[in-house]
Amino acid sequence: MNSVTTRAENVARPVKLAAKPNWRRKLKKSYFAYLLMLPSIVLTLIFSYLPMPGILVAFQDHNIFAGLWNSPWVGFKHIREVFEVPMLRQAILNTLLLSVLMIIVSFPAPILLALLMNELKNGLFKRSVQTLSYMPHFLSWIAVVGLTYSLLDVDGPINDLKLLLLGADAERSMFLSHQALFVPMLLILSVWKEVGWGTIVFLAAITSIDPSLYEAAKIDGANRFQQHRHITFPGMKTTAVIMLIFTLGALFGSNFELVYGMQNAFIDFPVISTVVFSSGIQQGNYSTAAAVGFVEGLVAFTLMISANFIAKKVSRISIF
């Protein structure tokens, strides 16, 4: 975003005609800028940058009373633990599994829905579909979990539907306590909440495609499918790749609310974010939790950089 403007200004620089401002005017100008930015900069430094050295907690046996600089350093002990303690290893594997499934299911879903929506003529129906499908995005995960609980109740509508389809003598299930149904449920919920919202950028990408391309294709005898294959998909490619890189970067650390909200006594599915919360914040094992968080950050960073690198090589699209 910055590089584009920067280049334009570099070109413009030689024709600068304005008188050189004297040092007082210069100071006054920057004084103004710094004064305005002061509150935001201070808050960013405190809440985003000040915690960063705290990641060193992962390399010591952190004692909350001794503080960061006086706790004993233990090197990679806790990082090793992440890969040796079965529960932590399980959490990493689960996070990987969930992330891969999320990419496979949640990423293409909005693209498909956007293609379907695009087939509709502009009008009341299209607007209603959009309005309704965007809405779940704005509900909190807690509310979504609450709604799900009552839908999946033993006497709830989903069980009614099951009985309707399988006959009245079918057994009502307790969906929420089935380990095997847990991951599919997470996927369905995340698609339900975000699919409509995700279509916005893709619909915008489709709208920006030059309509004359479709007319030309029609004249050449391309059918609906071929038009999408050769015009719509290439037209959406940039947006899709950029969204994919962002998704990959954010994916690994996310899903806390969802997994935390849906888990219960019968579900054994720790993911990194829930382990960091339960062992770190609730039980006070700061060092172990920080080590898990550190590994997570590293993986997320690697994922994002490599996705960016591959995208740059393959399609010349990248975010940096």
Partner: peptide, 30 residues
């Protein structure tokens, strides 16, 4: 950038804080 030389530095200060953070535990301790 002519008017505010260090503009990009502060822009990156913000963007960097959006992409990277110390994680939950360091935040909690602070």
């Amino acid at each position: 950038r002519r008017e505010f030389k260090l503009r990009d530095v502060y822009m990156w200060l913000l963007i960097f804080s959006m992409m990277f953070n110390g994680g939950l535990i360091p935040f909690y301790l602070i």
